[in-house]
């Protein structure tokens, strides 16, 4: 049966790579995001690269009014429906410290906005009884660090949400993957200094598709982040609180 991915936050670097790879596998893409002209370009590109269906639709994590039309559009798409969520924003922690209201936007973009949308889509997915939800979190959500703990907190919230959603949707045959990428070479990280183990977005995209095929629950991508985060998670808080990593 043909599969269509609803790609949320589709203009992000990793989402673009993901859309292109899904297209090359002959899967459809419904591209949701803010910048409509960019989305149209990505949709056209996916069409030429093999997507039988490629369409753009407006989505803004901070505008819940944009969510219902996505559900409506999704209803009209036949076959397997899957969702991949790539939204998020990561202002510098220092900017947030100077302007505390940025906390709300960061959490809306990375957690509550996508969680709201997924909750809205959940009954439709349950009704279909198959498909995948891939939620992109972050290794930053595994532990609150000095450098970006608001972003980390929102991703941690999203991880817990996905865990619950997995528990719920699994009962009706829909699989949920929590994706925890490390540092990726994206527009968001371009120009940041000294990033460890930087991966290309194509690698993250192919890991997500493979995890969907193999019905993995939680993946670290690239895989090197699993041992790294296992160590970081195991550091006692009384030591961790003094560290700068």
């Amino acid at each position: 049966m043909s599969q269509t991915w609803i790609i949320v936050g589709a203009t992000s670097t990793i989402a673009r790579a993901f859309a292109r790879q899904a297209a090359a596998r002959g899967e459809g893409v419904l591209l949701a995001g803010r910048d409509m002209s960019e989305l149209e370009s990505i949709a056209a590109d996916c069409g030429f690269r093999g997507a039988p269906f490629a369409e753009a639709i407006a989505f803004d994590a901070r505008e819940p009014a944009s969510f219902a039309p996505i559900l409506e559009r999704a209803r009209g798409i036949k076959g397997t429906l899957s969702v991949a969520v790539f939204v998020g924003s990561m202002p510098d922690q220092e900017e947030i410290d100077a302007e505390p209201s940025l906390v709300d936007g960061t959490i809306t973009d990375s957690f509550t906005g996508p969680a709201h949308l997924l909750t809205l889509l959940a009954p439709l997915l349950e009704e279909r009884g198959h498909g995948t939800v891939a939620g992109v979190g972050s290794v930053a959500g595994d532990r609150g660090r000095l450098g970006n703990y608001v972003y980390g907190a929102s991703k941690a919230g999203f991880h817990a949400y996905l865990s619950g959603l997995r528990n719920r949707l699994g009962r009706s045959g829909v699989h949920v993957i929590t994706v925890k990428p490390g540092t990726v070479d994206t527009a968001m990280t371009w120009g940041m200094e000294k990033l460890p183990f930087v991966a290309q977005p194509e690698k993250i995209a192919s890991d997500i598709l493979r995890a969907a095929d193999r019905k993995k629950d939680i993946i670290y991508t690239p895989a090197i982040w699993w041992p790294i985060m296992t160590i970081i998670r195991s550091i006692p808080e009384r030591i961790f609180k003094k560290m700068e990593i």
């Binding site: 203009t11 670097t13 673009r16 910048d35 960019e38 370009s41 527009a187 371009w190 120009g191």
Partner: peptide, 30 residues
Amino acid sequence: MRWKTVEYTGWGRVLKARGEVARPERASAL
């Protein structure tokens, strides 16, 4: 636009450059 300082060369690798590079992903950024 965000700039990143990189060292890069032409394909022959005899001549080198060091400078700031931007990498836009959308027409509006360019």
